[in-house]
Nucleic acid binder design. Sequence first.
RNA 1: GGGGGUGUAGCUCAGUUGGUUAGAGCGAUCGCCUGUCACGCGAUAGGUCGAGGGUUCGAGUCCCUUCACUCCCGCCA
Length: 594
Amino acid sequence: MSKYRTHKCNELRKQDLDKEILISGWINKKRDHGNILFIDLRDNYGITQCIIDKENKNFLELEKIQLETVVKIDGKVVERSSETVNKDIETGDIEVVINKFEVLGTCKELPMPVFSDQEYAEEIRLKYRFLDLRRKKIHENIILRSKVISFIRNEMTSAGFLEFQTPILTSSSPEGARDFLVPSRLNPGKFYALPQAPQQFKQLIMVSGFDKYFQIAPCFRDEDARADRSPGEFYQLDLEMSFVEQEDVFNVVEKLLVNTFKKFSDKKLMYDQFPKISYADAMLKYGSDKPDLRNPLVINDITEVFSREDVSFEIFKKLIKSGSKVRCISTKNTKDKPRSFFDNIDKWAKEQGASGLAYFTFEDDGKLSAKGPIGKFFSKEALVEIMKKTNSEVGDSIFMACGKLNELEKITALARDKIAQDLDLIDDNIFAFCWIVDYPMFERDEITNKIGFSHNPFSMPQGDLTDKELEDPLNILAYQYDIVCNGIELSSGAIRNHKPELMYKLFSIAGYDKQQVDEKFSGMINALSFGAPPHGGIAPGIDRIVMLLANEKNIREVTMFPMNQNAQDLMMKAPSEVNEEQLKELNLALKIKK
RNA sequence: GGGGGUGUAGCUCAGUUGGUUAGAGCGAUCGCCUGUCACGCGAUAGGUCGAGGGUUCGAGUCCCUUCACUCCCGCCA
């Protein structure tokens, strides 16, 4: 028998009546009636009400005890009278009459209450994370995370995937995010980098003939944080398969995600088969490659309408002549919305740095017209054309923006979210997954004007590329794909380029000559020259999956020991300064920018 | 690197137009209370109003600088 407990705090029931039992846990709450004292004892599993009265010699000492003290209670299970049964807890039919108790862990005055649904400042939560983690909501989130990972592991293993670990100390990669560097004591002046993802390793695993690999892999990127992006480190379900095409990867991941989300959430899936949207379509219809498909609004291009003689909206016409486009969002049956609804959206758009959103509403009192500040600039025929292009009807409204493509996509994407929120069009009880496919292989850097890889340099381009097609690299598409759910990018993957000759060609477009490629990617390119199977994979983000399942808006709520926005661990005080000797041993000297 | 928000008791917050000694709830301490489950009642302690500077007869409140936390943009193949 355990020295500390015969039962856990969720276990005792009516059938245990009269048993002498031991339970251990934290004092969650005390209710002191002077001559009788109730104590809610809490452990990982649940809560048991314990009771002691004045007759017991331990009464006074227990009355004074601090909340969150860890105690062992020795007592007897008794039935509660029918009026005092508590249906909110599993053990609510019984209570434990305390005979003796022992303090196992004392507790100082708490910097934050544990038993409370109150929200607290991030700083105090992170500093006392061990207290924060005792609180119900986040405690359950972390348990959910464990269950999700365990479930995924099972699914992957039963699907024939092998789990491997890959190195944490590896080499710096020239593409992608900033690396975390680790100085090498044995190799003065040289550094390891922490992996941004096990990208090259998983391909090497395929070249090594293991066929199907997965790993719950830590990934390290030294980039700034966001609500859905931890600074520093995060976890991916990294997976890779040999002798597969895009569809084979889709089938595996789609099944896994559907199973996982159905098991761990009551929310409905909008699609059991994820729709596939090309990158180009997504950018046009949603202004983003991570559209929230719960949002029914779509963006339409109506630039052509402004070339009509009977449209006299000169501001837009002039901008279009210098290369701008006009895109719009049509909202259903908004004719009775107050003027403030429209003006607020216009004002909001200006706050976002746009020049605002022009709007009007289609009306028909015998004659089709556009109601709104700019309605007068459009003829009846022009309005009919807009209605046709945007699938609108009388009573609907149009919000328009005009600008250069990049800005236009950005502002219309934001406006799509904003308007849907204002109109309450987004059903929060749905998960809407989709695939974004056919990413361009290359893109032009706006600032340097150079052509670079738009995603992963190791992706396989689509089609048999002739030299002529290579001359126009911006038109080359890749077997590169993302999974998006409710507007959050969940994963990114690709069929890999396993042909060294083709890889040299693609790298040369991005400005790397053969020698540089051999140098930077020696492990990869060498391996591909010794019999590489066609292969591909993907890497869903574990933290974001759990975040969606736990219905949380912030990734810290599903991370056990997160860092703050400035990539500091307030509890462990990391990062920290190191002493002179440590630096010396590593052949390092500090030169800090003022 | 840039923009927004927040910062008042251990915790969550209020604090009017610049005006007397900065308040409440929870928590802490002390007292009362035998059926609560957010127990109840009474009392006490607890404040560098994030920090620094300025305007003013007078600043929690207005101005400037700065720090911390947070959200967003950049960044994240």
